[in-house]
Amino acid sequence: MSKENSKVLLGSGLLLALASSLYCVVPVLAILGGVSGAASAFSWAAPLRLYLLGATALVLGFAFYRAYRS
Rank of each mutant, 00 (worst) to 15 (best):
R49W: 06
S21Q: 04
Y51V: 15
A45T: 09
V28K: 06
A45C: 02
A41M: 13
V26L: 11
V25T: 07
S43Y: 11
A55S: 10
A19F: 10
W44E: 01
L48G: 05
P47M: 04
A55Q: 03
L53P: 05
L52C: 03
S20K: 07
Y51K: 13
V25Q: 01
W44R: 02
A19I: 12
V35N: 14
V25N: 01
L52I: 08
L50R: 15
Y51G: 12
S20C: 14
L22A: 08
S20A: 14
G37V: 06
P27C: 00
L22T: 01
V28C: 03
L48A: 13
R49Y: 10
C24R: 02
A38T: 09
G34V: 04
A39Y: 06
G33E: 00
A41Y: 13
L22Y: 01
V35H: 11
V28E: 12
L22W: 01
L29N: 05
A30W: 00
L50P: 14
R49G: 03
C24D: 08
S20N: 07
W44C: 00
L32M: 15
G33Q: 02
A30Y: 01
A38G: 03
S36M: 06
C24T: 08
S36I: 11
G34C: 05
A46Q: 08
G37Q: 10
Y23L: 07
V35A: 14
A41T: 13
A19H: 01
F42I: 15
A46P: 00
G33K: 04
G37Y: 07
F42G: 00
S36F: 07
L53G: 01
V35T: 12
A55N: 03
A45K: 00
L48C: 07
L52A: 12
V26S: 04
A45W: 02
L52W: 04
A55D: 00
L22C: 03
A38I: 15
W44V: 09
L53C: 12
R49P: 00
V25C: 02
Y23W: 12
G33N: 05
L48I: 07
V25A: 08
I31H: 08
A46H: 07
A41V: 15
G37S: 13
A41I: 15
R49K: 15
A19E: 04
S20V: 08
G37W: 10
S20M: 13
R49H: 13
S40D: 13
A45F: 04
Y51C: 11
A19C: 08
A45I: 14
A46L: 09
S36K: 13
L48Q: 07
R49E: 11
L52P: 05
C24Q: 06
L53A: 11
S21D: 05
Y23N: 10
R49N: 10
S43L: 09
A55L: 12
P47N: 07
R49S: 09
L48E: 05
V26K: 02
G34L: 02
V26T: 11
V25G: 00
V25L: 11
A30I: 02
A41H: 08
